[in-house]
Every structure is written in structure tokens, then in C-alpha cells.
Amino acid sequence: MAAAELMKSEKMFNGWVKRFKHSSAELGCDMLFTVFFPPAAAAEGVKVPVVYYLSGLTCTDENFTLKAGAQRTAAELGLALVAPDTSPRGLNIEGEEDSWDFGTGAGFYLDAKEPKWARYRMYSYITKELPAVLAATAPQLDLGNACIMGHSMGGHGALTIALKNPAAFKSVSVFAPICNPTQVPWGHKAFSGYLGEGWQAEAAEQYDATEMVKKYSGPRLPVLMDNGTADDYLQTQLHPWAFEGAAQGKLDLTSRMQDGYNHGYFFISTFMEDHLAFHAKHLLA
């Protein structure tokens, strides 16, 4: 696997925020991702643990990097932060840019089955190609010592990817995740479009955390989930209570409702330190 091209590098809290570009074989386009390297990564022979962050609808790699306020805590804890994009871009597919919750910026962390959307393979990109590119690009990353987190659509991605690959991650955390997407409008639109007719069975088995955890028999992954009581999407799109009920006895789940917080990055930045400390406890044990 070829190394990614460094596009930009900026010092922050004595670490470095670096944005990379590479040609993705999975997605058929150039992809950008951002990595924060903590100061510890500069020491010769040192490998630092990795936190993957999956963003939500309409986002790029820069939403987390610029808005989440994660770097100070990551620098102190010695954690690298990896922020990929949320979909392929510029594939010139008819309808790709028509809506904010499908197509560009809305890859839903799945591998599409509909021929028209065949390059929308964000599940394989996150789980296979991106780690290989990181290994070729940044040898100071300890990719075998990783956790995963995400927001909204990215929370859905973090949960489903971890449930399918529990040996790859020490812990999982999510902000306002789409917990039961087969039962809500965002999921119906994404799954019917990407997976095609008869999407319900495959979506439930492969891409719905609530349905997946009902049949899960892997290790009791530590999971931290935060939702805001003022989130406009809580009742219509997120359904954390469904996941809470299904995960009992299957995962080590801590689920919190944060009073007055909504769906955005003010909420995420407020509790980011908690989430990184949660991951550090498992990554640095």
C-alpha cells in the first residue's frame, strides 16, 4: 500500500495536525483524512495508540478537527486522532449531490450493493484500506491498539463497525448515534438507496447496531454513549433506548442523557474530554 501525500501540517499543543490525501482503490477517488499526532509520537521508536473518529451527515474530516476541541486532551494523554471523510467525492453519479442525507457526505459506513452506488464502500474503506494507508504513512501509530468513536451517522458507524470487528477496538464511544436505523427515516433512505430492494434483512444483520447486538456473542466491549435532552433528532432518528435495551448483558454500556444539550459540536466539545479519558483508560492499560 502506498503512503498518503501530506497536504498540510500545523503545530498544535506541541503535537501536529496533518492532513493527507491518497487515491482510494475502494472508493475510486482521491480521499482526504486528518491525523493529530500527540507530542509523544515525535520520540524515536515510540508508537502511540489510535482513536478513530467517524463524523456525521454532511461532514468532512475537518468538522471534528476544527470543532471538537479534542487535541489538547489527546496531546496530554498521548493519543493519536484519525478523522476520515464521510463518503467518496466527485464520482459524478447522478443524484450524488441532490440531498444532504444521501450521497456525498452521507456514506453511512456501509458497502453499497446497488450497482449505481457500487463505489460507496465506506465500511471496507474504514476497516481495511484506511488502516493499510495509515500503516504505510505513519509508522508511529500503534494501529493494533485502537478504539473508535463517532457522532450521529458516525456513531452508527462506530457501533456497527465495532460489533463486526470487536477484536480491532479496545473501546467504543458515541455522541447522539443513529442507534436503530432500520426503524427511522435516515436509515430507510440510506439503506433502500444503497442496498436496494429487500434491504431490510441485510441492513438489520449488517448495519443496525440495535439489531446486531441482539445476536452479538463477542467480548463485552466497553461503550460510552452520550445524548442530549434537547436534541431535535432524539425521538425521530436516534432511539438510544432501543440500543440500551438490546445491549443489556452483551456490552459494558454506560449511557448518559445530558440535560439541555442538542445535536451539534457544542455538545460534542463539552464532553470530548470524558470520551478521550474513557478510551485512554482502555488503550493505556
Rank of each mutant, 00 (worst) to 15 (best):
E96H: 10
A3W: 02
F266Q: 14
T34Y: 01
A132P: 08
G28E: 04
A138M: 11
F191G: 09
E244I: 11
I268T: 06
E96T: 03
P177G: 11
Y207D: 06
R72I: 00
T229V: 12
G69T: 07
A83D: 00
S192W: 05
A74Q: 05
F33V: 04
R72L: 12
K215R: 15
L130W: 05
A68S: 14
W16Q: 11
G144I: 03
F169Y: 15
S217F: 02
V82W: 01
G144Q: 10
G218T: 13
G15P: 07
G105M: 01
P115V: 07
G196T: 12
D274T: 13
A25Q: 13
L234F: 10
T210V: 09
K281Q: 15
F191I: 08
C29R: 08
A203Y: 06
A135W: 00
H279V: 01
Y52V: 03
F36W: 02
P88F: 08
P219L: 07
P177V: 12
L251A: 10
F191C: 12
E44S: 15
W100A: 09
G95I: 03
W186F: 15
G103Y: 03
A43F: 02
E96R: 07
G228R: 02
G28W: 02
G144L: 06
H156E: 09
R121F: 06
Q200K: 15
A242E: 14
A201Y: 03
S152Q: 03
Q200T: 15
P84I: 06
A168C: 13
G78A: 07
L238Y: 02
S192D: 12
G245A: 12
L32P: 00
E5N: 14
L141N: 04
L234H: 04
G218E: 10
N165V: 05
G78Q: 07
Q235M: 12
S152F: 08
F102P: 01
G15D: 01
K18Y: 00
P49V: 03
L159W: 02
L91S: 04
V51H: 04
D30A: 13
P185W: 04
V35P: 06
M153F: 05
G218C: 13
L224S: 11
R72C: 05
A25V: 09
D98W: 08
A118H: 14
S152V: 11
D98R: 14
A4Y: 08
G103W: 04
W186R: 00
Q140W: 02
R19I: 11
N14K: 05
Y53W: 15
F266N: 14
F278D: 11
D208P: 10
H151M: 04
T270L: 02
D232V: 07
D226P: 01
N262P: 09
W241F: 03
L66T: 11
R119G: 08
T65A: 14
P181Y: 04
H275M: 08
S192G: 12
P240I: 01
N145K: 14
A106G: 08
W199A: 14
T182E: 02
A209F: 02
M212D: 06
K116C: 05
A41K: 08
G264E: 08
